[in-house]
Design a protein around this nucleic acid. Structure first.
Length: 530
DNA sequence: TCCGACACATATAA
DNA sequence: CTTATATGTGTCGG
């Protein structure tokens, strides 16, 4: 298959030229009045960033590309915001029957560019996203000594044995589920799988800067440190009461923040319906409640606006080339591409940047409070063929109803964050000693209901010409796992991790198919969502 | 036209 | 400084 190993692409690589921090770093830093740190501009009001970048360049088609290098820190930038939280199922504290309201927070940290009023991503590129949830007016401690339940459509209590966070995507036009795949840092040389469902308790979203800093670290000590931001310290488990939800959580690590790195839209998404010009995708982070007999319910979620995901078509790349050849008749070009700015494939920036004015407020970090009285039904895109929830059990809060409730400082320094009192004692109490009691990888246990059978897990492509083919030392570093956090401390474990991982995935896949069919047959009203 | 592979280039982590 | 990595994207061939 493929072409002969040595067929040599003779790539006459004509990388127009890579953008580099100095290009606009200075201007960007202008905004560094607050918590500042170099990478600050990345999270600055979108249009400012774009304005800085676009105003001084890419006016002319013949200009330099100004693409951002693959490893550039500039690839990290805050993407589309997740504004409000939609509640599907009120949650009750079992001991008091008090209802607690969840907020789901999330932020895209890599992979999307703002273009006018649209967010654009590339199918071939990774995107990074983090999500977490909180229970209004409750600290994470509550998970250590309380149990929770919801009411099903028959009004019966259903105990929640575990909360979990997951990432899903769907097409905004037809409501179809869009598969997502996650790679390891090895990309083609490593396995691919569905984004995991993280058993989780409430947590706080790390700043964009932290997420950037936490990416691609290989130093084990450092990994352990950063993992404290994403997982509950195992030592805290000793404080778990027998009567708490935490006591019924699965073995393995429990997340406080669901971190999804190296995610891509499945390659099969570009199926373009003749009529539809552009399909848009929505990214959504859901808070799940795993119930007692294997069922689960989507308790709440938050999602992005419809996003544009450009496919591999050359029309979405090599813009410079196109500019050159069709410069004369560039009118038509204006139609087929939106002006783009910033990194990645650069369009000629044909349209102006005037409409950059509408600023989407970033609610991703702020904690919000909402009045229960202002509930209303969520607008539904497309029909709800798969609707399994009673309409009246769905409530939604509009972002405008949110009030900033004791916003937390956006700490960007790991030490500061770890020192921050945000996490209650029980949760973050001791952070020093690393407790290697965590399970190595598959901490997602058997809860990945998100796995779609159509996604075939691929084993790392063997062969690989890999010109260097360095069998070097340990190829089984933590990088082999999607979530760099998974392996963490010690263990380092085996070298055939890949194999065990794949084995696990296979089993999981089968198990999930069973569960899925069970649920379908069951017609369980509680298991919602596509 | 779309996609899997492989290749190249280049900022980062260590 | 050097080396190994990670990742956007150019390109070939089916």
């Amino acid at each position: 298959m493929g072409r002969p190993k040595n067929s040599k692409n003779k790539t006459k690589s004509k990388h127009g030229g890579w953008s580099n921090k100095e290009d606009f770093g200075a201007q960007v830093r202008v905004r560094s009045n607050d918590i500042t740190v170099e990478s600050d501009y990345e999270s600055c009001p979108k249009d400012l960033h774009e304005h800085l970048i676009s105003s001084g360049r890419d006016r002319e088609p013949g200009m330099k590309k100004r693409k951002v290098a693959p490893r550039s820190g500039l690839q990290f930038k805050v993407g589309p915001s997740f504004d409000h939280t939609t509640l599907y199922r009120p949650i009750y504290v079992t001991s008091t029957n008090e209802s607690v309201f969840p907020f789901v927070h999330a932020r895209v940290d890599r992979g999307f560019e703002r273009c006018n009023d649209e967010w654009i991503g590339y199918k071939r590129n990774y995107f990074t996203l983090v999500g977490c949830f909180e229970l209004e007016d409750k600290t994470p401690d509550i998970f250590f000594h309380e149990k929770f339940h919801i009411l099903n459509d028959q009004g019966e209590m259903e105990n929640i044995s575990c909360f979990a966070l997951r990432l899903v995507s769907k097409c905004s036009e037809d409501d179809m589920t869009v598969n997502l795949i996650q790679h390891t840092a090895k990309r083609d040389r490593g396995p691919q799988y569905s984004p995991p469902v993280y058993p989780a308790i409430s947590g706080y979203l790390p700043s964009h800067s932290i997420i950037k800093q936490a990416s691609n670290i290989r130093n084990n000590d450092k990994i352990d440190q950063y993992n404290k931001l994403f997982f509950l310290d195992s030592s805290a488990l000793s404080k778990v009461s027998e009567d708490s939800v935490l006591s019924t959580y699965p073995e393995g690590r429990i997340a406080t923040v669901a971190r999804y790195e190296r995610i891509q839209f499945s390659t099969s998404i570009n199926y373009r319906k003749p009529t539809m010009v552009n399909r848009h995708f929505i990214l959504r982070v859901e808070l799940l409640g795993l119930l007692d007999d294997g069922k689960y319910a989507v308790l709440a979620s938050t999602e992005t606006q419809p996003l544009v995901v450009r496919g591999r078509s050359p029309s979405n790349y090599q813009i410079a080339k196109r500019n050159m050849k069709s410069m004369a008749s560039n009118d038509q070009l204006k139609m087929q591409r939106m002006s783009r700015t910033g990194t990645a494939p650069d369009t000629g920036g044909t349209s102006s940047d005037e409409s950059h004015k509408l600023l989407v407020p970033d609610y991703s970090v702020a904690r919000r409070k909402y009045p229960r009285s202002d509930l209303y039904k969520p607008s539904k895109r497309g029909r709800k063929k798969k609707e399994k929830l009673e309409i009246n059990s769905i409530m939604n809060w509009n972002p405008s109803d949110f009030v900033d409730d004791n916003p937390r400082p956006d700490l960007e320094n790991l030490d500061e964050v770890l020192k921050d009192s945000a996490l209650s004692e029980a949760v973050s109490g001791k952070i020093d000693p690393y407790d290697p009691m965590f399970e190595p990888f598959p901490f997602q246990s058997g809860f990945d209901f998100n796995l779609d059978p159509t996604i075939r897990l691929k084993s790392p492509s063997r062969s690989k010409s890999k010109r260097k083919a360095p069998q070097s030392k340990d190829q089984a570093t933590h990088e082999d796992y999607p979530d760099s956090a998974s392996k963490t401390s010690g263990s380092n474990t085996s070298n055939n991790y890949d194999d065990s991982f794949l084995e696990f995935q296979k089993e999981l896949s089968m198990l999930q198919k069973e569960l899925k069919s069970d649920l379908d047959g069951d017609k369980s009203i509680l298991s919602l969502v596509t």
